[in-house]
């Protein structure tokens, strides 16, 4: 964990309790990501998904909480390669996402992009980028486009704790602050950039302070608690939307799985993983809260489980039944016909 003293993260208790329907929706959205990723891991194990496959399990509260502050049809989202959760949270079709993972024609990119490269202009999702940190100037450009067109939108640009040491991140921070671009930078600090802990990679581990030199406000947030994330997201988005410029949120979170599928995760102890899973799981925490608030009963939760299971099963079936791209697809989409 971080060695630098941190500001006290906001507590969920301080926030107004949102209506229960909304809470239940967060639960469902997080559960969908969890079950989808578990299924993706399983399909990988069966050889149906190849190459890199970076699972989001454990981090679900971050993107679902952030999306609670997004204006549908206006705001934009961009992230790096651990991206399936962001796609689902943006409302992209699980079938299209899973079929892209299996490299089939029914995938979002017709099987030509894979796990790290999917896009949906309709849902405001701009990828899915495989070069660590490159999504940050790109996302800053989305913020620029929001400002240029005056559409009132905000770009949520996500990066991991590994990307924060890329130079282009600071080039972006500088321009975003200089031009007051509507961008919320979300640092998903899951403690490890591949196998290197934050402490071994960053001279200063208070990542939310990385915009200080540019006058960009930043705040740490408990990324395992969806209501805390949601409150921080609302504040950050409001700041960016109102013309005050960018905002940095450092969501402290945890990935349960390895960096990608072939990572045995020897750089951390089993106890550390197990402690996060049992004491801080974002889905279990919200489940307990829902029951405590009488927002839903056990039968209702079971019904959501069942519904999510059906969606994921159908996505998995679609991803296996959708044909591989026709050989002629090799030669399409290189250039747009002028």
């Amino acid at each position: 964990m971080a060695t630098t003293p941190r500001r006290k993260p906001r507590s969920a208790k301080s926030s107004e309790v949102p209506d229960t329907e909304e809470l239940v929706r967060y639960y469902r959205d997080m559960l969908l990501i969890r079950r989808f990723e578990e299924k993706a891991g399983q399909l990988y194990g069966m050889g149906l998904i190849g190459g890199f496959c970076h699972l989001y399990i454990g981090q679900e509260a971050v993107v679902v909480g952030m999306q609670a502050a997004a204006l549908e049809g206006v705001d934009t989202v961009i992230t790096s390669y651990r991206d399936h959760g962001h796609m689902l949270a943006c409302g992209m079709d699980p079938k299209g996402v899973m079929a892209e993972l299996t490299g089939r024609i029914g995938g979002y990119s017709k099987g030509k992009g894979g796990s790290m490269h999917m896009f949906s202009l309709e849902k405001g999702f701009f990828g899915g980028h495989g070069i660590v940190g490159a999504q940050i100037p790109l996302g800053t450009g989305l913020g620029f486009a929001h400002q240029y067109s005056g559409d009132g939108g905000v770009c949520f640009a996500y990066m991991g704790d590994g990307a924060v040491n890329q130079g282009q991140v600071y080039e972006s921070f500088n321009m975003a602050a200089l031009w007051k671009l509507p961008v919320v930078y979300v640092i998903e600090n899951n403690k490890y950039g591949m196998g290197t802990s934050v402490e071994r990679a960053s001279a200063s581990t208070a990542l939310y302070e990385r915009g200080t030199a540019y006058g960009i406000p930043g705040a740490p947030v408990d990324g395992m608690d969806i209501l805390t994330v949601r409150d921080a997201a609302l504040e950050a988005a409001e700041h960016a939307r109102s013309g005050k410029g960018p905002y940095i949120l450092e969501a402290n979170t945890y990935r349960y799985r390895g960096h990608s599928m072939s990572d045995p995760a020897k750089y951390r102890s089993k106890e550390e993983v197990s402690k996060m899973r049992t004491e801080h799981d974002p889905i279990d925490q919200l489940k307990a809260k829902l029951l405590e608030l009488n927002a839903i009963d056990e039968a209702g939760l079971k019904e959501i489980d069942r519904e999510v299971k059906v969606i994921v099963t159908e996505a998995a079936e679609f991803s296996q039944n959708s044909p591989e791209p026709d050989p002629s697809e090799l030669y399409t989409d290189i250039l747009v016909d002028a």
């Binding site: 100037p137 800053t140 620029f144 929001h146 282009q168 080039e171 972006s172």
Partner: peptide
């Protein structure tokens, strides 16, 4: 250069 080339590329993704 890396920053503004990337920024402009992102703006082009959005239709500028």
């Amino acid at each position: 250069e890396m920053g503004f080339a990337g920024l402009a590329t992102g703006a082009a993704f959005k239709g500028l």
